[in-house]
Amino acid sequence: MIVPILVTLFVAFAVSRVFLRFREGNVSLGEFIFWLLIWGAIEAVVWIPKVLDQIAQDIGIGRGIDAVVYGAVVLLFYLVYRVYVKTEFIEREMTSLVRKLALKEKEKER
């Protein structure tokens, strides 16, 4: 029983953070509900692991844990892609900065 309790404590902490940011207006109502659903789903899975198995079976994957692993792989792929695009963008920004400095420096010389 130790794992569900620890997770619940963490979820309570996370939800309180989101709530505070929602109250400050940094998080919109939509985002607030989104996070509530995510954390709620985590709570449900932790307390009633059967839920996960049921979902897995519904979408045609044998075990709940397999569904989690598949989902995680897909998510990771997506995140890697996002990071790649972001890095590429930063690299280009950097190049244009370096170029501007080089041209400016040359202008000064003239």
């Binding site: 950097m94 190049t95 370096v98 170029r99 400095l101 080089a102 041209l103 420096e105 040359k106």
Partner: peptide, 21 residues
């Protein structure tokens, strides 16, 4: 005429700087 990149950005980047100049 020499232009200098303050950090290394690669040949393509250097070429473009030269062309711009």
């Amino acid at each position: 005429e020499v232009l200098s990149h303050i950090i290394n950005r690669g040949q393509g980047a250097a070429l473009k700087t030269g062309i711009d100049y």
